[in-house]
Design a protein around this nucleic acid. Structure first.
Lengths: 108, 108
DNA sequence: AAAATACTTGACCATTTGGTCAAGTGTTTC
DNA sequence: GAAACACTTGACCAAATGGTCAAGTATTTT
């Protein structure tokens, strides 16, 4: 599996996207990250592992607690991939407006 | 499953991303879309169904052939979601450069 | 030293995913 | 009307996903 597969896959889940969003407010522990979600710690841990495998989350152990933080790089790669379609959807909009212009020609 | 789940999930696969990319060049039939990939038509069809379920691909039957085209809307939603992190990674870069500035203070 | 905290690991389970093959349907083409 | 074409569907399979629970480890706290 390549990087984009892992990143898109990690983001294809509500729980994990919420975790990413939650991490925007800064570093937090595994338990803090898990707490808002209606599942066991073990369950949440699996999600965190998916995020780490995708490189979206980095962690560091201090004493008995593990602190997690966002790594924005994979998100940037997603951004880059999706950006390629900018031109496409702009041209789609152009096509649409051209179509509408054309439609209105016959009128009045 | 919500729209983002489906879209991110659909894009979490090399074959499907290649199909999306391929569709940039315009409308194409199921078989044309399937042909570049080392799998049976049935296999490719499953991927196309995933893309359709995510709303990334729309299709229309003309005679015995089915023509597929891209719908950019779900990509736009992905773009929107990821864009929220712009501010974050910019601030990360800021933090990094501040850190580097700080490091270099002790020198020379 | 015992207890509580903060994970971590492994076994298990149901469902989904990504692929196969074989047979079926509807539309051209000959 | 028969054959070829372009899908479509359904049965099957192995592996991955998303969850559970129970037991284990390492680090504080008391």
């Amino acid at each position: 599996m390549n990087a984009l597969d892992l990143t898109f896959g990690a983001l294809a889940d509500q729980t994990r996207r919420a975790m990413v969003q939650h991490l925007l407010s800064g570093e937090m522990t595994i338990s803090a990250l898990a707490e808002p979600h209606a599942m066991t710690l073990s369950g949440a841990l699996k999600h965190i592992r998916v995020l780490k495998k995708a490189g979206l989350v980095r962690s560091e152990k201090r004493g008995r607690t593990v602190w997690c933080r966002l790594d924005p790089e994979p998100l940037r790669q997603v951004m880059d991939w999706v950006s390629h379609y900018d031109a496409f959807w702009n041209s789609q909009l152009d096509a649409l407006s051209a179509h509408l212009m054309n439609e209105s020609e016959g009128q009045s």
